[in-house]
Simulated assay, not measured.
Amino acid sequence: MDSKQRVHMNQGQGETSYARNSSIQSARQNRMKPLIEAAIAELCSNASTLLRGKMVVADLGCSSGPNALALVSIAIEATHNHFLQLQQPPPGLCVLLNDLPDNDFNVVVKSLLGLQQTNEPICVTGIVPGSFYQRLFPSGSLHLVCASNSLHWLSKAPEDLRINHISAYDTNEHVRRERFPVVTEAYARQFKEDFTLFLELRAKELVPGGRMVISLAGRRSVELITETSHVWGTAAQILGVMASEGIIDKAKLDSFYIPAYGPSEEELREIIQEEGSFSIIEMQVHDPISGMDIALLTPNMIANTLRAAFEPIIVQHFGEVMDEFVRTAEKQFSLQRNSQLQRSKDPRVMLVVSLAGA
């Protein structure tokens, strides 16, 4: 991750923390459960993938709060159930949690105690700070890698946009639409570079026959590409309204880039196949809010979810503007709630992929 942009979710347990505003992400993790269980079943059935009676599971981009242990807990339970049915002792488990150094690991470490206290399977835990766009683990050491709601974050914003002073977002709709293909292509190139590197690194760290189950924000291929189809689109729109109302400096908006990109299903599939280290076992496309109680998705809830995810990077660039950001977001979401745009199909999706080492 570019050192100039310190990307992490809001820390702590307060009202604006990620821990208190991550129910949407939790619903998305639940969609990964069947694929994680299937991957565990496959690994446990193949004696050659288990090294000396142990299994190592890593969650990359674990964040903090109640979601931090969700994926590894699914893997632990699936492993326990598999060997319980066979009436055999389960392998020892090693669970490793990774995120960027600014993540709130204090909260994560405390929650890990619960995993360590389980009797079966025996579970050893560890924290591995660092970017998943670099080597994190020894060669051939991991059996299962999980990553949820994290791989749409790029190592950096596209440098060619910065160098050529091409804004990702503009308050003038005509200018924005005219520029958008250039912006989209730059983000797509950066995502391809980053995700290809991610696959190469994990292929080295996984045991032969190792598995990965990942989810990330994406977009519908059949939809016209607009700013609302991007991960950063909604936050950028809110900031655009704030710039047009004089709350933030338009020049600062022109130089602001959120390092995140959501690919289409075809785009993601093509990158995986071209890189060649993994075969696709299954790829699912989900509506981003499926499985959630729509009544809970109030303007205030959505605004605070955005705040929990984007506050650190926004404050770093614009200063302390988040209370106004939330007020502006709530107003915009209230206006849009009953519009035709809101009744139409969301251009954004969640992509969930199960991969096996080729």
Rank of each mutant, 00 (worst) to 15 (best):
V7Y: 02
H8W: 11
S23K: 10
S23C: 05
S26C: 11
R28K: 10
N30V: 04
R31E: 03
P34M: 08
L35I: 04
L43N: 01
S45F: 07
S45D: 11
N46T: 13
L51E: 11
V57I: 15
D59A: 12
P66Q: 07
E77P: 00
T79H: 09
P89D: 15
P90D: 10
P91K: 09
V95T: 14
L97V: 10
L100A: 07
L100V: 09
P101K: 07
V107R: 05
L113K: 10
Q117N: 12
E120M: 10
G126L: 03
G126F: 09
V128H: 03
P129M: 09
R135T: 11
F137P: 00
P138H: 06
S139N: 14
H143E: 04
L151G: 02
L154D: 05
E159Y: 13
I163P: 02
T171H: 05
N172R: 10
E173R: 10
V175D: 12
R177K: 13
F191A: 01
E193A: 14
E193L: 15
T196I: 02
T196R: 14
I214P: 01
R219T: 00
T226L: 13
V231F: 01
T234G: 05
A243C: 07
D249N: 15
L253F: 11
P259G: 07
P259I: 03
S264Q: 06
E266N: 13
E266H: 13
L268Y: 07
Q273F: 12
Q273I: 13
E274P: 02
E274L: 10
I281T: 08
H286P: 05
D287Q: 13
D287C: 10
P288T: 09
P288N: 13
M292G: 06
D293T: 04
I302W: 00
N304F: 06
L306A: 06
V315F: 00
F318C: 03
E320G: 04
F325I: 01
T328P: 08
F333K: 00
Q340K: 14
R343H: 08
R348K: 14
V349G: 02
M350L: 12
A358E: 08
A358D: 02
A358Y: 09
